[in-house]
Amino acid sequence: MASISSFAMPSEAPTYSFAAAQSASGQPRQHGFYPYTDNGGSTLGISGDSFTILAGDTRSTSGYNINTRYAPKLFKLGGSGPNHEGSKIVLSVVGFAADGNALQERLDTIVKMYKYQHGKDISVHACAQRLSHILYNKRFFPYYVHAILGGIDEEGKGALYSYDPVGSYEREQCRAAGAAASLIMPFLDNQVNLKNQYDPNSGPGLEKVQRVPKPLDRTTVEEIVRDAFTSAVERHIEVGDGLQMMIITKDGIEEVYTPLKQD
């Protein structure tokens, strides 16, 4: 929401697009360089027993403007050629898009170099730790992004790692990030981790036992992701236009694109 308040509302009189020209000459003026902007959007990842799904909307905003309706926030890592063939790891970044792209390029190169030097694909947990180091190396001028990394671990199970901008990370079952994270995350707690849901046959009042979450199947997860995003689109102006989903299995990455509301 911070991006909204910092953005100037359009006024009646014609103005210059840069602030400095407005002040009269001779008056002192303050110059500033703001290295960050917020490009809005939201991402989401859920891991299953044998797959991981990452999703993100494709709208890019600055303030109340839409830069483009198709700017992917999901990136395949370490694949060969323009279509990233053979890739098994996906990185999603949301926040400041320029930093997100820079981060993706860095990690992609590292994953490729790993294969060139060691003759095998990097494991997700190694890639996850490397990403943490990349982020922490810029501890005092951070990449302004919330990253989520998805893949298949060495046991063939779905793996999902989420990061803060300075590299603190954790493996999780599900995570929402970006502008609509606060809308999506409690919904995920309820539907994926079954929070606040109790077994109705487990006795009265405080004796009730929490339902235990078990890994979900692919169609259910896809449904939850779609529901989460259509909900977020309804209530958040920075989310919309398109939903890009990547489903990572042992056989590779499947990519699905579905349109979202453009209002």
Binding site: A180, S182, L183, I184, M185, P186, F187, N190, Q191, D227, A228, S231, A232, E234, R235
Partner: peptide, 11 residues
């Protein structure tokens, strides 16, 4: 309210 918008819109 942000969280409530998310859960209400979803449920």
């Amino acid at each position: 309210s942000d969280q409530l918008f998310g859960t209400c819109e979803g449920l």
